[in-house]
Design a protein around this nucleic acid. Structure first.
Lengths: 263, 263
DNA sequence: CCTGATGGTTCAAATAATGGACCTTGTGGT
DNA sequence: ACCACAAGGTCCATTATTTGAACCATCAGG
């Protein structure tokens, strides 16, 4: 693993649940020695990727990230497109909706989301968390339509059991992927968070590769057979819209499926 | 310069004006050899800090940046606070307003801004650009209140002449800093962009160090003596509010100046 | 006034980065 | 059809940077 990899990895230890960490904590998390960790933290701080509290000496994420993320969004306003499509989808389903894109082989990163505010019992999105491929509707459907080498790399991992419903057997997961490829949708029934049902459709780039998914998530109780068709249709339309907004192209068979579902 | 520095520097070449660059362009910009540049780009891509267009092979900023920036903002919602204060300031002055924070020794990075939409002739903010210390009201006032070692480091640089009004002589700049320290405000009269007048007040962290500035910018024609006091008072109030929102503490003398100006 | 935790620094040894040369593909010119 | 050039990308002996055990300073609790 390169020096740069090891350095950038440090940034990943900062979560919303632990937004500041000290030198010793980084050292323990990374399993490296203190001197190297310290030099890396100093380099990241110099570059503006971290900032250090002058009193506690703890490190937190820095302003350069905000600046670069702004530049990215100004150049390629994908999040803005996503938000527009999500608004329409939310109007249809009145449940929490989100768009997430592949972030390396570890999972999906959420680009935009709308939290439901029309029900008392609703599903919250933590936009800073990576969504694992094996335990979420978005992850399953993204993996199902991803290119084979990528899928194989991900499936070679060992998966974590997050709830009692999480499937971690690669053979069974392969069946789920097969199912998603046939139907065009990924499903999760409490595999990521207990009692949360979710459906997702894949999003494609201009070269036809799958780059992420659009999904809706709700409490199990509200996902009835009656509502299912309406939800699938709305999600299919959103996926189709966003894919073409982004200049993407779905595989021919899926395009046919989507068109037949959109009323 | 460390390997990590050289690698992270590559990200800086991606601007809104050049959101995608190829290997050769990065190589020329960095002045390094092609093989090393390529390895660095690959590492950044693996980490999600860049993504590569599968067709053109050009590199652009990646999804990891969005994710980290979101985490940062969730943990320390400084931009949200800034936006709230900017809204009030905008209501008072009806001109473009922005909050920028120190980003290394190169300049200030804009955290939040509101573009004026009440005049035909207005000033636009390019939030992804770094504001130079010597040619902007925000830069001058931030430097004026910054700790001495930092100020000396910045003043040791050679400055670029951006317009016919840009002051680049360190001795004269030192006088401007002195003036800003006395009055509590930085000014720029067309030194960054021709015809754009700007006033800025400093922002402080909890340890009393200056971390950035809040400013308003307008066409020269609208900055009259009559409006000046109203503007200074509004900017002072905004700086005072945002500093305390962020848990910061202005120096005693400045606090007195601000309090006397706020009606 | 110990003890163990924190943040930070040093420098010889070990490892990873470097970059000139090379390969391949695509484009524009004649 | 052919050549010249620039693009993206790779190889590997040389070289420079990273590494990490041992170190120091400070603080909090017992």
């Amino acid at each position: 693993m390169s020096t740069v990899d090891k350095t950038l990895k440090l940034l990943g230890y900062l979560k919303t649940t632990s937004p500041e960490l000290g030198l010793s904590q980084f050292t323990r998390l990374s399993g490296e020695d203190k001197a190297s960790t310290h030099r890396r933290l100093t380099e990241l701080t110099r570059a503006g990727f971290l900032e250090q509290d002058p009193v506690t000496r703890a490190y937190r994420l820095g302003a350069a990230l905000t600046r670069l993320a702004l530049t990215r969004e100004q150049s390629f306003p994908r999040a803005e497109h996503a938000r527009r499509v999500l608004e329409r989808l939310y109007d249809s389903v009145r449940e929490t909706v989100h768009v997430s894109v592949i972030q390396g082989t570890d999972g999906l990163s959420t680009l935009a989301h709308i939290d439901d505010h029309s029900h008392g019992n609703r599903v919250y999105i933590e936009p800073a968390d990576l969504l694992p491929f094996h335990a979420t509707a978005s992850g399953i459907v993204t993996l199902a339509f991803a290119v084979k080498p990528f899928r194989d790399t991900v499936l070679a991992r060992r998966f974590d059991r997050l709830t009692s419903e999480t499937e971690i057997d690669p053979a069974v997961l392969a069946l789920h992927l097969e199912d998603a490829r046939r139907s065009g949708f990924g499903r999760s029934e409490g595999a990521y968070e207990p009692d949360v049902f979710s459906v997702a459709a894949p999003l494609f780039a201009s070269d036809g590769t799958c780059i992420g998914a659009i999904a809706t998530a709700m409490p199990k109780a509200r996902f009835t057979e009656m509502s299912e068709n309406r939800i699938l249709s709305a999600v299919a339309k959103a996926a189709s819209d966003l894919t073409s907004y982004w200049g993407g192209e779905p595989p021919g068979t899926l395009k046919a499926t989507w068109d037949s579902m959109i009323v």
